[in-house]
Each structure stands twice: as structure tokens, then as C-alpha cells.
Write a protein that binds this DNA or RNA. Structure first.
Lengths: 234, 234
DNA sequence: AATATTTTGTGATATGCATCACAATGTATA
DNA sequence: TATACATTGTGATGCATATCACAAAATATT
């Protein structure tokens, strides 16, 4: 696997970062200086590990551009918790909740990330209440989403969960009815707790039934209404 | 169903509250005054709703004593997300993440709770960085636990998840090998995503195999090692 | 371009668990 | 104390989906 990583520091980079979060809008001039001098911008190509379960966590990560998966090793096999799209912070829970990373993050496209030293991030939190407050909001929403997702995973059957994944790609990740799957069928299986064989069979079924057009990893959603129905009744 | 609710305000109550959290240790004198004048202490008996999915959320809740369940209505039926034991904050995610409660909290024993107005709590967060920071830590850990629990629910089979529930009661909730189940078999089913019939059959099996002694809702764990094995290989 | 590796398609078979059905017991309520 | 309601036990049956097996296709590596 190829690596393509570089690190640089730029004047004012954080302040003018076009991908900055709602939280970082709350930062003042001096906080930005602090950030500028204590972060590392890194580029990864598709398939690289940004954060690895079991390693010591020493950085908060801001995903500037690109797509990644959050995954962890479950009691019997790997599980993909969710897919995340820039811009977003990554690894807040794992960095603050535990000295050792409790999950991994791996890129699904070429990405740009900023590594922010945990001590610097901590200092920001402690010195800026508005920033802290926005982070708290993000964490709260993230946990609510975890609850919802878990209920779906456990209660819907495979057909419904697969429909959801396709709709998530179309509606939120690519915002287009046509897209190229950024993960393999085996990975889709790990995302919806099923076997790769089932994913394959169901994708063929969706294709045959005219819900999607599939050509390799190229997908076109041709009947969103029906997919939504399947999502509900799965 | 009987109700037993009273509200009172006491001098210095929050500061001397023996159940206070690590987060509230960070509060200063004036913050405590603020809290004292803006919270309502309420007692509930078993089976009451502290917080209801779909209602407007206007209070953060601190569970002083007792046991409760966090639950929500999933795509096909009710799911119990987890059981929570005092002392703990409740409904942080649902209160800050969304104007409308995304989950319910119901008591499983007689409990004491404090309702803290959301605006007061917000003010505390914004005026006390250490308090905010502790809340952030709690939220991070909570999300990590959500991830772990979801992986267990989806990957372990029923036997393993049931063993986990029994071990959780013994190890964390009651801290004793002997306890009275605070929930019905049907609720255990909702906690581990299975039917009440399966729960019944498996509990009988555990009893027959000498892992537990069961007499109505009275449980004694007689072979913890085996339960732990089942938990792992489920 | 040739070879190795990963990904996908599809049949056959096995199985864990849901669901239905109904009786028995336990618990609340009038 | 009697009656209604909720909980539990246990058999019979069906189904969604895992698993195994193997071939074909696509992608990566030399």
C-alpha cells in the first residue's frame, strides 16, 4: 500500500481554514495562534489508517476533506460503526474518554486531516467556554445518533439496513442519485451486521427489481420511493 | 399507578449533596447558589417516567439515588438502550442535542432526582470551564460505551447477551451474586434484542445447567466463570 | 503482460431465533 | 376476597440469514 503523508505548518492556516467547524468559529485570535503552532496537517490516500484501536491517543483529529470509516473489533468480528464525511472532528470520544484508542478510523478516499495535540485542544476547551459548549453539543448529537443507529441495526432486517446505506450515500454522503461505492460489499456487511454474501444477493435483487442500477461499484438509485419503503418495513 | 412527587428547595443542598458528580466538584460557591435556587428535587416510585421521548426537553436531570432505564421506540418496537444507576446525569444528550427528547427514562426503583433548568445548566457550562470539561469527559466515555454495547448487541448471540445482563446486575448494578431482577423478562428481551420467550427458555436453561439459581425474580449466580465463558463465546 | 490477490455471484444446506398458541402462575385493583 | 391484567413456561412451526463451496470477474503487484 502506498503512503503519501506530509506535515506542514502555515501562518493563519486554522483561522482561514475553509472547513472549520461551528465550534471553532468561537475561537479568538490568540486561540488560533495556539492552534496554528500546534497542529500538523496531513494528507492520506484512500485506505490509510488515521487512528488505530489499541494505540495511545495523543491527538484530536479534524477531518478537513474526504470520507472515512469509524470501526472497531467487536466480540466476534470487525464492525463499522459509521461513515463520516468532512468537515468533522474525529476521535474526540476515544481521545478524551480513554488513554487508549477504543476504535479505528480509516480513510475511504484521499483526505486532508489536521492532528491537534490533545494538550492544546484541552487548553482550548478550558480557556473558551463557547468552544467547549459547541463541542458538548456535537457530542450530544453524536450520542443521540448512536442510539438511533443501534436501534436500526438491531431491529431492521438486512434488506432495510441495506436500503438505508444506499440512501445515506445518495442523500448525505454524495448528495447525488449516482455514485461509486467507496467500500466493498464485505465492508457494507460489516456496517449493517450481515455477511458479504447477503449483501451481494440483496444488491442483485434491488437491481433486478429496478430499485437501483448497478455496474460494478457504480450505483444509480432509480426508485428512491421503494427504497424508502423497504427502509421502513425492514 | 401511584405517584409520589414533591418539590422543595433547600439551602446549600447542592453543595452538600452526597451524590454529587465529579463534574460538580468543579463548581464554585456562587455556582452552587445558582443551582440551589434553580433546581427541583423530586422523588419517584418505581415505574414512573422521568423523561419522555417526544416531549420538549427543558431540564437536565441528576439521578441522586436509584435505578432507571433509558429506552426509545425503534423502527419496529421499543428498545432499552441501557440501565443507569445513580449517581449520574441523565438526558444530557437529549436535552442539548435536540429540543425534543429523543429517548425516555423510566425508573426501575424508587429514585430521587434533581431537575435542573436547562438555562441554568447552560450558564454553569459557560461560566465554568472545569465543569464543562468534566461533562465532556462523561459524554466521551458514554459514547465509547455506546459503541461497545452496540457491537455486543449485534454480534453476540442471545445466550451471550443474556449472560452479560446477569453479570452486569451482579458486578455493577447490585454488586452482589444475589439480587432481585428489577425488570421483567420481556424488558430483558428489549435490552438484548430478543423475544421474551427466548429469555424465558434461556434463563431456565441457565438454571438447569447450574449457572444460576432462579426463584421468580430472585436470582443467584452460582457459576460466574461459566457465565463469563458464555458471554465471550456467544 | 503475467501472476497473485481481492472482490463478487450464486447454489445448497444448516440453524438460531421469532412467532404463534395456550396454559399456569403471579400481581394489581375494585 | 374476587376479578382483571401482566408475567412466565413450554411446545410446534417457519423463516431469515449464516455458512460452506466454488467459480468468475475485477484489481493489484511483479
Amino acid at each position: 500500500m502506498h503512503h503519501n503523508v506530509y506535515i506542514c505548518r502555515m501562518e493563519n492556516e486554522c483561522k482561514i481554514c475553509p472547513f472549520s467547524s461551528k465550534a471553532s468559529e468561537k475561537l479568538c485570535e490568540c486561540s488560533y495562534d495556539e492552534l496554528n503552532e500546534n497542529h500538523a496537517k496531513v494528507n492520506f490516500i484512500k485506505g490509510n489508517s488515521i487512528l488505530k484501536q489499541g494505540n495511545l491517543s495523543s491527538n484530536v483529529i479534524f477531518l478537513r476533506t474526504g470520507l472515512a470509516k469509524i470501526h472497531l473489533s467487536g466480540p466476534s468480528h470487525e464492525q463499522i460503526v459509521r461513515l463520516v464525511k468532512a468537515p468533522t472532528y474525529l476521535g474526540l470520544p476515544t481521545t478524551f474518554g480513554n488513554k487508549i484508542n477504543q476504535y479505528s478510523v480509516t480513510t475511504l478516499s484521499d483526505v486532508e486531516v489536521c492532528y491537534i495535540d490533545i494538550n492544546v485542544f484541552q487548553k482550548l476547551l478550558k480557556s473558551n467556554e463557547d468552544f467547549s459548549y459547541e463541542i458538548i453539543l456535537e457530542l450530544c448529537n453524536s450520542e443521540l445518533e448512536s442510539f438511533r443507529r443501534c436501534a436500526n441495526r438491531t431491529q431492521k432486517q438486512t434488506r432495510g439496513n441495506l436500503a438505508d446505506v444506499l440512501l445515506e450515500f445518495a442523500n448525505h454522503i454524495f448528495e447525488s442519485e449516482t455514485f461509486t461505492l467507496p467500500i466493498s460489499q464485505s465492508e457494507i456487511g460489516k456496517l449493517i451486521d450481515t455477511s458479504r454474501e447477503s449483501v451481494s444477493r440483496l444488491l442483485s435483487e434491488f437491481d433486478k427489481d429496478g430499485l437501483i442500477k448497478m455496474n460494478g461499484k457504480q450505483i444509480e438509485i432509480t426508485n428512491k420511493k421503494s427504497l424508502e419503503l423497504i427502509s421502513q418495513n425492514g
